[in-house]
Amino acid sequence: MSWHSGRLAAFDLETTGVELEHDRIVTAAVSIVGGGLPTESHDWLVDPEIEIPAGATAVHGITTEHARAHGRDAREAIEEVVALLAAHVRDGVPVVAFNARFDLTILDREARRHDVRPLVDRIGGAEALLVIDPLVIDKAADRYRRGKRTLTAVSEHYAVRLDAAHAADADAIAAARVAWRLGQRYAQLRDADLRTLHRWQVQWAAQQASSLQDYFLGQGRDERVEPAWPLVPAPVAPALAVAA
């Protein structure tokens, strides 16, 4: 059976912003779908312990006041999200995340911030990750298509229903539906085993980052584009100076 018709762990976050090393989780969703079995939906509203900027609230609709009043303790919620994903990855179920580099890195940093054992440490290292990223795959499969590559735009292109954009549960389900469409449409993807497809995405993501970096340089823009996928390595803390 092809991966696209098996069980998938659809994952999405809404956050306080887009800075990988500093921003926090506001909502999270993991939906276990496919394989001819009922969907298992899990979602969390989290107190991020910092102010939610107005710009982020405009995207996902969660205010600081609402998160503080109704959100879960961040450490407890992050432990539950990480534990659930780890259990499914260990069972060979891939994590489906649109722009996985962002969601998995934010989750990793939140785990470390709250002294939660990170996902990669629970599954045997980053090399044990199994990830399907419809954004990376779509860019590789249909490289020259014009237009935006947001989840909304990609869902529309593949005739996938997106019930409520920027709600974590809806975005997670839409990403899984796009992944299924990609597997349906492209035999090379459909016939690949998960390990091979994961390795391809590592290569494609690096190539896409390099291409975008070259474009920025051509525009005179001094911006670094992160090539690592699906997880940006955690920064190494500087060594402490030893007094003589």
Rank of each mutant, 00 (worst) to 15 (best):
A9N: 10
F11A: 05
D12P: 00
D12G: 05
E19A: 13
H22N: 11
D23F: 04
R24N: 10
S31W: 00
S31P: 04
S31A: 13
V33I: 12
G35F: 00
G36E: 08
E40I: 13
E40C: 11
S41P: 02
I50T: 15
A54V: 03
A56D: 06
I62G: 05
E65W: 00
H70Q: 12
R72D: 08
A74M: 07
R75S: 08
E79F: 04
A83R: 08
H88I: 02
D91N: 14
V96N: 05
A100Q: 08
A100W: 01
R101H: 11
T105V: 07
I106M: 03
I106V: 15
I106F: 06
D108R: 03
R112A: 08
R112Q: 08
V116A: 04
R117I: 10
V120H: 01
I123T: 10
E127H: 07
E127Y: 00
A128G: 06
L129E: 01
D133W: 01
K139F: 03
A140R: 12
D142P: 12
Y144F: 15
R146T: 14
G147W: 05
E156A: 15
V160R: 01
V160H: 02
D163E: 14
I173R: 03
V178D: 01
Q184M: 09
Q188M: 12
A192V: 12
D193P: 13
D193K: 14
L194R: 11
R195D: 07
T196M: 10
W200F: 11
Q207H: 13
Q208C: 11
S210F: 06
S210D: 13
Q213N: 09
D214C: 11
D222Q: 07
D222N: 10
A228G: 09
P230H: 03
P233V: 06
A234R: 02
V242M: 10
